[in-house]
Simulated scan of single mutants.
Amino acid sequence: MIIYQAKDWAGALRHFHTSFSIRVLLRRVAFVSLYGILLTLIDQHLIVVNLPFDGTLFSLLGITLSLLLVFRTNTAYDRFWEGRRQWGSLVNYSRNLAVLLDSLLPDEAKANRTYFASTLANFALALKGHLRNGVDMAELEDTGDGELQTLSQYGHIPSRIAALLLRRIQTLRQDNIVNDADLITIRLYHQALLDITGSCERIKKTPIPFSYSFFIKLFITVYVLLIPFVLVETYGYFAIPATTLAAYALIGIEMIGDEIEEPFGLDCNDLPLNQIAQTIGRNMHEILGVPSSSVVAPKQEVDYIKVN
Rank of each mutant, 00 (worst) to 15 (best):
R14S: 07
V48T: 15
E201A: 01
F20D: 01
G198H: 00
L46Y: 12
I203K: 08
H15T: 11
C200M: 03
E82Q: 12
F264M: 12
I253S: 02
S211E: 11
R187N: 14
P272Y: 02
G144N: 04
D78M: 12
T197M: 02
S59W: 10
A126C: 09
V302E: 11
K128H: 08
Y154H: 14
L151C: 10
Y248I: 10
T243G: 06
I177T: 15
G236E: 11
D270L: 08
R167K: 10
A109G: 03
L41I: 01
E286W: 11
R85A: 02
Y212L: 00
A76H: 05
F53I: 15
S94I: 02
A246K: 02
F80A: 01
N74R: 15
F116Q: 02
S66R: 04
S292L: 03
N308V: 08
Y212P: 10
I253R: 02
I227V: 14
D102G: 08
D175V: 12
R23D: 00
I256L: 12
Q275I: 15
S292P: 02
E139H: 07
R14Y: 08
I276G: 00
L39G: 10
A277W: 05
V290A: 04
W87I: 11
S292M: 14
A242P: 03
T143R: 07
D78E: 05
I169R: 03
G144H: 03
A126R: 00
D182I: 01
E301M: 06
K306Q: 01
P228E: 07
E108P: 00
L61G: 06
T185Y: 05
R14P: 03
K128S: 06
E254Y: 10
L65Q: 00
D54P: 06
Q275V: 12
E262Y: 15
H156W: 04
H190R: 02
S199F: 00
T73Q: 07
N274L: 04
R23C: 04
R95Q: 10
I3C: 05
P158E: 02
F31I: 07
L271I: 12
H17W: 04
F229G: 09
L51Q: 13
A30S: 04
R14K: 13
Y189A: 05
M1I: 11
Y154I: 05
I157W: 09
L125G: 07
F71W: 15
Y115D: 02
D136P: 12
Q300K: 09
W81E: 05
S292F: 05
P291A: 13
K299H: 10
V307N: 03
F16H: 05
D175H: 15
V91M: 11
I37R: 01
E147N: 13
H285Y: 06
Y248P: 01
P241S: 08
